[in-house]
Design a protein around this nucleic acid. Structure first.
Lengths: 158, 158
DNA sequence: TTTTCTGCAAACGATTTGCATACAC
DNA sequence: GTGTATGCAAATCGTTTGCAGAAAA
């Protein structure tokens, strides 16, 4: 099944935590589980996670959510992203690095964020490294414009 | 001289403002002038601008700075950027669109932000538009890694 | 037991807003 | 004169932190 990358992360959580001197707690497990179970919902904010917890009658506090998201990002289990909407967003870091590199298309009209799964930046990165001596380890690419839905409707607001 | 793009913006400020129903004020002129006069200092935050104003014994308030940066960005005179350091940053929007498209190389070691002046994304953008129907009007590309200085020193911290 | 973790509430920093006054047009 | 802009202070929002009690190792 195609979700194996993510189930792996959940099962291996205790191991990754203790490797780095952290403890396994039900809160951390539950927060990570939310990302696994809502994998269709990309890039969730701390508030998003917190409100799902409240729906589930969980007693986990907002500060704990923030601390867990920080920790899981440091461990490489989540990836923090910033879409300029005033809050940090997170998504599961798939184990496969070729999947990890995708781009975001941000619609200026409906604010939707679409993922574009191909990378195609290798050539540009190689060129930049050669020309500037800057060694690239990661990138973040956002394209702003109008999604096909909004273009079809023709009402392009701001 | 090569600064003509920017001097143009300063002279044309009144025109661009009144075109959109805004008024010319000494505060707006002074704030824009700071970007023109400090063009070597890229991407300044509202606090950066405010502290330069205080050095110049200006009475302009911080709220006015925020409002002016917003307005100048809406008019396309400034461009707002976000480097994930917790505050918005702005730089002059050069009139020449081929200059406007540059990338940022962010050093994970010393936090320096380097500009890479070539774009080279046309092919990728054309491909994305064709494949997804998303019409791209702008982009923001950040590369994270290690700058040549830090690589030479060899001490790569976090 | 010992150290880390949690929840709460208070603190924080960047940004925004309400309002009375001052200014551009 | 009319409506917009300013400066100030208070409000807001996402996020962080201090602390005492709770729980993992």
């Amino acid at each position: 099944m195609s979700e194996n990358h993510q189930l792996f992360d959940l099962k291996d959580l205790r191991g990754k935590l203790s490797e780095s001197g952290y403890k396994m707690t039900p809160q951390r497990k539950e927060i990570l589980k939310i990302f696994v179970e809502h994998s269709e919902r990309h890039h969730m904010s701390a508030e998003d996670v917190y409100s799902i917890l409240r729906e589930n009658d969980s007693e986990i506090g907002l500060a704990t959510v923030y601390r867990a998201l920080d920790l899981l990002s440091d461990l490489g289990i989540l990836v923090r992203m910033d879409f300029g909407d005033g809050c940090a967003r997170y998504e599961l870091n798939t184990a496969d690095p070729t999947i990890h590199h995708h781009h975001h298309l941000i619609c200026l009209n409906c604010k939707k964020v679409i993922e574009f799964e191909e990378d195609l930046l290798e050539m540009l990165e190689a060129y930049i490294e050669k020309k500037s001596g800057f060694q690239i380890v990661n990138h973040e690419v956002k394209f702003f414009g109008y999604c096909s839905d909004c273009r079809a409707k023709g009402e392009l607001n701001p």
